[in-house]
Amino acid sequence: MTEKVHTMHEPADESVDSAARSTGGVAAPANKLIFSVNDLSVDYGAFTAVRDVTLGIYANDITAFIGPSGCGKSTVLRCFNRMNDTIKSAKVHGSILYHDIDLYGPTISATQVRRHIGMVFQKPNPFPKSIYDNVAYGPRLAGLKNKSELDELVETSLRGAALWDEVKDRLKSSALGLSGGQQQRLCIGRALAVKPDVILMDEPCSALDPIATARIEDLMQEIKQQYTIIIVTHNMQQAARVSDRTAFFTTEVNSESDRRTGVLVEYGRTDSIFSQPVDDRTEQYVTGRFG
């Protein structure tokens, strides 16, 4: 089960307690397990994008998914809020337990899942509406109509996203007039307004300049007190800077079909992944010799 991935990739390495590593815990895992991913595979039609992923995500951690292009890290991320449902050919196998509830269970509604598990995308994607209406969008969907409650929620969400002071005088103007970094913080604020437990971030800084990136990273450190964050990043330094745990994915080429499938290679505390990786492929990647 949970050992499967690792026994497959590390048959020689019997000294590693794979069960402990597969849940990412080495010492003193004070945080509660919030997700447990079991044998997750995603197919797009006949093509398997990523297979046999097993790992645990801990509350109030920042967990980073790293790896070369095509390794399936974004695909796995999009399983956590069932965004892969929107792709018709995508099929998800295995399970993701969220507080012991299977997110892919027959009675689970994807829209409700997404209210608990928010998402921030690679490219800032505010709606072509006012700043206020962007933040109020999610709460309004949830049925909140009271003007003063909405006002308050918009303010706390924008404060939470470290954007309030910059936009408080122009809440009614278009969100598209903001800079890229501001737009991305607005998208974070928009996600916070739904009051989620978890925020998924799919390369949230890849379209931003270094200063805007630093602000988002600071913001992540602030909000992790209240939220659990999973971030996909191409940027290894970013993973090393911000995350508590890191999962390294890579691609394996199927010798028969010559197609690439993503696999989870190694998962553990960020400092050990970067300083004492167990798998050679992880070491090559984090030292910059591959990918």
């Binding site: 829209t111 209210r115 928010g118 995308f121 994607n125 709606f127 509406k129 999610g138 969907l141 739904v194």
Partner: peptide, 25 residues
């Protein structure tokens, strides 16, 4: 843009709400 639609869905919009909020807007 697909990103607009994803943005709405990720905030818990149903298909119709996504269409109203993203596509029609």
């Amino acid at each position: 843009p697909l990103t607009d639609r994803d943005g709405a869905l990720a905030l818990g919009a149903t298909r119709w709400e996504m269409i109203k909020g993203a596509v029609l807007t």
